[in-house]
């Protein structure tokens, strides 16, 4: 019996192996390395299509200087979306619900964009601390606010992913428990609840994809300010 609904997020360990390591290391067998031969299958075709279209869309608003990040951002998207989606399967562990993992990706990548900006074009990068057309009395306050918002970005990036996935998993578990409890007492209500559960699962599939995209998109926006 579950002690608490939050126990599903505790990082489990089996035979001395932390399952978070397995959940991070193994999903990549789903991405077959495509060969240089002119032979393909449906999986490779749809993955290649997705990666190329996604990279194209993501790099469109960026300066040419930011295009070096294409491989990194595409890899990040594949990494996050795969872990998010596989985590929705029953009895799996989702590493992206762990705050430490998300912060481990958010902080270094955000810091990289800031350092690039400060090193290559410090005037433009610092210019983002004050929006154009600010009334003079507001200038000191606004610079403080913008500086805070700059430094809170990695925190928001990591917490956003954690909170969204955690909330989704919790809701699914709560409603699934409700279905089991209601089944012997009120079958009709239980069936209705199961319908809600099904719709919620669809929503969570969407959230898993959207949150991976939002993470990468925000990083590309931070990069856009700094290249």
């Amino acid at each position: 019996m579950m002690v608490s609904f939050f126990d599903q997020f505790a990082s489990p360990s089996y035979l001395g192996i932390p399952l978070i390591a397995i959940a991070i290391a193994l999903p990549w067998v789903l991405y077959p390395t495509s060969s240089s031969r002119w032979i393909n299958n449906r999986l490779i075709t749809i993955q290649g299509w997705f990666i190329n279209r996604f990279t194209n869309q993501l790099m469109l608003p960026l300066n040419v200087g930011g295009h070096k990040w294409a491989l990194l951002l595409a890899s990040l998207m594949i990494f996050l979306i795969t872990i998010n989606m596989l985590g929705l399967l029953p009895y799996t562990f989702t590493p992206t619900t762990q705050l430490s993992l998300n912060m481990g990706f958010a902080v270094p990548l955000w810091l990289a964009t800031v350092i690039i900006g400060m090193r290559n074009q410090p005037t433009v990068a610092l210019g983002h601390l004050l929006p154009e057309g600010t009334p003079i009395p507001l200038i000191p306050v606004l610079i403080i606010i913008e500086t805070i918002s700059l430094f809170i970005r990695p925190l928001a990036l990591g917490v956003r992913l954690t909170a969204n996935l955690t909330a989704g998993h919790l809701l699914i578990q709560l409603i699934a428990t409700a279905v089991f409890v209601l089944m012997p007492m009120m079958p009709t209500v239980a069936i209705l609840t199961a319908t809600v559960l099904f719709l919620l699962t669809l929503l969570e599939v969407a959230v898993a994809m959207i949150q991976a995209y939002v993470f990468v998109l925000l990083l590309s926006l931070y990069l856009q300010e700094n290249v």
């Binding site: 990549w28 991405y31 390395t33 060969s35 491989l71 890899s75 594949i78 990494f79």
Partner: peptide
């Protein structure tokens, strides 16, 4: 991951 992505690109 990057090796797999590169082989697609």
């Amino acid at each position: 991951i990057p090796t797999k992505i590169l082989s697609h690109i």
